[in-house]
C-alpha cells in the first residue's frame, strides 16, 4: 500500500469516526444528564433522514432538507420525551432498555406507514460532488464537509456546556439532580430540551449520512450499536470520551477492513484471505471495546468520577 493510499484510508477512518461522533454525542449527552439508555436513538436518526429526504425531494434544496431533518428529529424527540421517556428517568436501566426497544418497533413501523416501505431518494448536492486534492491524496468534498460539521458540533457542544447558562444547568444536573431542582431550575423543561438537542444531533447525523448512504427503514440500528460501542469506550456521559472513542472506532474499523484481508493474503489464497480477513474485521471493534473495558471498566474518560 502506498503512502497516499494509507493517508487516504486514515482520513476515511477519521471521517467515519466523525459520523459516529454525531450519533454518539447525543446519546452520551442524554445519558450524562438524565441517566437514560436510549435504544431509540437510532430511530431518531432514521426519522431525521426520512424528513430530510422528503423535504429535499419537495423543495429541491438539500440545505432546507438538512435543517428539516434536524428539526424533525428534534420535534419527534420532544413528542417521545413527553409521552414516554420522562416516565423512565426514575426507573432502572432495565425498564429503559425495554421501553426504548419497544419504541424502535413503533418508530420503524410508523415511519414505514408514513413514508412507505421503499428506500427514499436523497443525494448530496451537486456543488459538493467530486473530489479535491490534498497533497497527494484525492478526497471527496462531501466527506470533508462531514469532518468539518463534526468538528463544529464538537466545538458547539463544548461551548454550550461550558459557556452558557443552560450548560451550567446541565452540568449541575449531571452532578446533583436534587440540588438543581432546589435551585429553582425547571428540571422537566431542561430534560426535554436536552433530549431534543440529542435528537436533533441524531437527525442531523441521519440527514448527512443518509445523503451519502441510503435512507431506508431500519437504517438506524447498525449505527446505534456502533454509537453505543463508542460511548462505552469513551466513558458514558463524556462528550470528550465520545469524540475520542468515535475516532478510535472509526480508524480501527476502517484500517482493519483494509489491512486484515491483505495481511492474510501473505499465507492464504486470495478468496479465503478476503473472507477470513473481513470476518475478523467485523469483530475487531468489539474486541477493542472488550479489551478497553477489561483494562478500564468505566471507559477511557469516566464522566462522573
Amino acid at each position: 500500500m502506498t503512502l497516499a493510499l494509507t493517508l487516504e484510508q486514515l482520513l476515511n477512518g477519521i471521517q467515519f469516526g466523525v459520523m459516529l461522533f454525531l450519533m454518539a454525542s447525543g446519546l452520551t449527552l442524554i445519558f450524562g444528564v438524565m441517566g437514560l439508555i436510549n435504544l431509540a436513538h437510532g430511530s431518531l436518526y432514521m426519522v431525521g433522514a426520512f424528513v430530510c429526504a422528503y423535504v429535499t425531494g419537495i423543495t429541491g434544496s438539500f440545505w432546507l432538507g438538512l435543517l428539516a431533518g434536524a428539526l424533525g428529529a428534534a420535534i419527534m424527540g420532544v413528542i417521545v420525551e413527553v409521552l414516554v421517556i420522562r416516565r423512565l428517568y426514575q426507573r432502572d436501566h432495565l425498564d429503559q432498555v425495554l421501553a426504548t426497544f419497544a419504541l424502535i418497533l413503533i418508530l420503524s413501523e410508523g415511519t414505514a406507514l408514513v413514508f412507505g416501505s421503499q428506500p427514499l431518494w436523497l443525494d448530496i448536492p451537486s456543488v459538493l460532488k467530486g473530489s479535491i486534492e490534498l497533497g497527494s491524496v484525492v478526497y471527496p468534498v462531501y466527506r470533508i464537509l462531514i469532518i468539518i460539521v463534526g468538528v463544529l458540533v464538537a466545538l458547539g457542544l463544548y461551548l454550550l456546556i461550558s459557556r452558557t447558562r443552560i450548560g451550567m444547568k446541565i452540568r449541575a444536573g449531571e452532578n446533583d439532580r436534587e440540588m438543581i431542582g432546589a435551585l429553582g431550575v425547571n428540571i422537566s423543561v431542561l430534560y426535554t430540551f436536552v433530549f431534543a438537542v440529542g435528537a436533533a444531533l441524531a437527525g442531523l447525523a441521519g440527514s448527512l449520512v443518509g445523503a451519502l448512504q441510503s435512507v431506508e427503514v431500519g437504517m438506524g440500528e447498525p449505527v446505534l450499536i456502533l454509537a453505543f460501542v463508542v460511548i462505552v469506550i469513551g466513558g458514558i456521559g463524556s462528550i470528550k470520551g465520545a469524540l475520542i472513542g468515535a475516532m478510535l472506532v472509526g480508524i480501527v474499523d476502517t484500517l482493519g477492513r483494509v489491512l486484515l484481508p491483505s495481511f492474510f493474503q501473505w499465507f492464504m489464497e486470495p478468496s479465503a484471505a478476503a473472507s477470513v480477513g473481513s470476518a475478523l474485521a467485523s469483530m475487531l471493534i468489539y474486541l477493542l471495546m472488550a479489551i478497553i473495558l477489561a483494562i478500564k471498566p468505566k471507559g477511557l474518560f469516566p464522566a462522573n468520577d
Binding site: Q9, P140, R143, L212, P222, T254, A274, S278, A281
Partner: peptide, 11 residues
C-alpha cells in the same frame, strides 16, 4: 468481501 450491512464504502 465487505461486511454484511456495511453502508460506508470509502475504504
Amino acid at each position: 468481501f465487505t461486511k454484511l450491512g456495511q453502508k460506508d464504502y470509502a475504504a
